[in-house]
């Protein structure tokens, strides 16, 4: 397990350093467009993927870089996509919010809030009809839990007992709007009762708690017991998107969450020396640097494909 945990810590650090690098690249205008950074929520993506089988699938959100990397997506390919290059998985047409890699079961980040929930439900229906034994994770934020698709998709998956894990990453703010401004109940997971499915609230800063909850949900799903609603309490370290200065939250609150940082927690749990930690970090930084170089050197997309790529 200690070797496995080292790999988990490395995955978390890869996401963290990738996002920190991106913040630089976007702020300095090297990369155009916008992005929504995952830093702070790494225990969720890595915990979910530690439990999933490689052929299991997931749908992601606008804040999807961490999901992609945890599922085994290539940092170089992701960086190239963000850079709008032809070597990105979406060939530069998607950018930050529209990355997919079907070869690893990553069915796509998604610019429409809670747009992925019906897609995940459909993927789970296909898995059930084809009897593949796959489960599907539908990530969404607490903001997405107020979309109609939340209700429609969870109800449909519950009625048909589909193998879906509805994983809500409650990072406390829907853009600038605080949880208690848009929810009348203390938890989102409590809604599970309304669909006749299992629901639980999990400390999303703790890798092991995430793993345990996902294990329970995946077991139910594979046993034909239907979907689960799992609410992960987390905090995003950066603003909602590139231009957000986080004036709606306090520096004290940020510090409180930073004190519970998922990477620090895991490092402490592992009893890792600073030297060992630095070795992993240097390795990760080299990989991020290589991704940046790959993206920088990659070709621009072909304008000839602009229209011809529309239809299959």
């Amino acid at each position: 397990m200690s070797q496995d945990l080292r790999a988990v810590l490395r995955d978390m650090l890869l996401i963290r350093r990738f996002e920190e690098k991106l913040d630089d690249l976007f702020s300095s205008g090297v990369i155009k467009g916008t992005s929504h950074l995952y830093a702070g929520q790494e225990a969720v993506a890595t915990g979910v993927c530690a439990i999933l089988r490689p052929d299991d699938m997931m749908t992601s959100t606008h804040r999807g870089h961490g999901h992609f990397l945890a599922k085994g997506g290539s940092p170089s390919a992701l960086m190239a996509e963000l850079w709008g290059k032809a070597t990105g998985p979406s060939k530069g047409r998607g950018g930050s919010q529209h990355v997919a890699d079907y070869s690893i079961g990553f069915l796509g980040s998604n610019g429409i809030t809670a747009g992925g929930l019906p897609i995940a439900t459909g993927a789970a229906l296909a898995a059930k009809m084809k009897q593949t034994g796959q489960v599907v994770v539908a990530f969404f934020g607490e903001g997405g839990a107020n979309q109609g698709t939340f209700h429609e998709a969870i109800n449909m998956a519950a009625v048909w007992k589909l193998p879906v894990l509805f994983v809500c990453e409650n990072n406390q703010y829907a853009m600038s709007t605080r949880y208690d401004e848009i929810f009348a109940t203390p938890t989102i997971a409590a809604r599970a009762a309304g669909y006749g499915i299992a629901g639980e609230v999990v400390d999303g800063t703790d890798f092991f708690s995430v793993c345990e909850a996902i294990e329970r949900g995946a077991t139910r799903a594979r046993n034909g017991e239907g979907p689960s609603l799992i609410e992960m309490l987390v905090y995003r370290y950066y603003g909602h998107s590139k231009s957000d200065k986080c004036e709606y939250r306090t520096r004290e609150e940020e510090a409180e969450w930073r004190a519970k940082d998922c990477i620090g927690k895991l490092q402490t749990h592992m009893g890792l020396s600073n030297e060992e930690y630095r070795t992993i970090l240097e390795d990760v930084d080299a990989e991020v640097e290589a991704a940046v170089e790959f993206a920088r050197e990659s070709s621009e997309p072909e304008i000839e494909d602009l229209e011809s790529a529309l239809y299959a």
């Binding site: 699938m57 749908t59 079907y102 069915l107 747009g115 929930l117 019906p118 897609i119 995940a120 439900t121 459909g122 993927a123 789970a124 229906l125 296909a126 898995a127 009809m129 084809k130 109609g148 698709t149 209700h151 429609e152 998709a153 109800n155 449909m156 009625v159």
Partner: peptide, 26 residues
């Protein structure tokens, strides 16, 4: 009724479920 499947009244998700199943080979 597995292949002729009644759904709840949820048009957006019915279409979305179709999309999700379609990208998975159905």
């Amino acid at each position: 009724t597995e292949r002729v499947r009644n759904t709840p009244i949820s048009e957006n998700t019915i279409v979305g479920v179709g999309v999700g199943a379609a990208v998975c080979g159905m």
